[in-house]
Design a protein around this nucleic acid. Structure first.
Lengths: 117, 117
DNA sequence: GCGATATGCAACTTTTTAGTTGCATATACA
DNA sequence: TGTATATGCAACTAAAAAGTTGCATATCGC
């Protein structure tokens, strides 16, 4: 009787919101940076580049990608550029994944019911 | 007193496990495919390509990427190749995100305590 | 067997990403 | 002031990703 209300997982705006976040997370170097930034609050570019085998420029680019996905925020302090983690997109991404799992489970349940009748 | 045990968010194997999953999720076309597959159980390639502006071949490639990340599983049935969602990597990715958020929160808490003293 | 449907494979083009190098600029600090 | 530190900007290379086209092959149904 009730019209099925399926949450708009694949709606234009929703896709355009989440895909860039996942893309930003889809790189080992950037995951490493995030992990580092969530242990040690604000870090400068040089600080972050110090622990890496890559160039400072490479690290900078990765940080800009993370910033573009709003996963980190930068603030200039004197001559250095400090980066800090911003958890909102992470939570949002989590919700998105949870919603997919949820829908999948309910699809399975429906299928099972259907088969059992 | 107690040595700090920080969960290995940025450990080689952990990175190599999760980065590809996030990378696979980091594309609008693939997110759309996943959403579709979680509503309608097993779908053939042609079926999935039908609702898209892209070529069947392009869709096939995206499906292979998803399969590479173990987000979907394919099975051949007669002349068609049926794809179904596999939720395990999604759950695992969720855990990873949750762990980052958790560590971030505890880092903030520690910082706050430190400042307040 | 035949025609239509569903795929796979391979070669190729175009974009994007990842990383580098070199050079200019601004801030700290002795 | 002068030197060392922290960055930004731009040009370039190399490699991976996204998509396309053309053709071969296998299966379904009549």
């Amino acid at each position: 009787m009730s019209r099925k209300i399926h949450s708009p997982l694949a709606t234009g705006p929703v896709l355009r919101k989440h895909a860039p976040v996942f893309a930003a997370l889809g790189d080992e170097t950037r995951l490493t940076l995030l992990a580092r930034l969530c242990e040690q609050a604000p870090c400068s570019i040089s600080q972050l580049a110090a622990g890496s085998a890559m160039t400072r420029q490479a690290i900078t680019k990765h940080l800009r990608v993370l910033e573009g996905a709003r996963l980190v925020q930068s603030e200039i302090s004197g001559r250095e550029n400090l980066f800090a983690l911003k958890p909102e997109p992470l939570l949002s991404a989590q919700d998105y994944l949870r919603e997919i799992s949820r829908q999948w489970d309910s699809a399975l349940a429906r299928l099972r019911t259907f088969v059992e009748e």
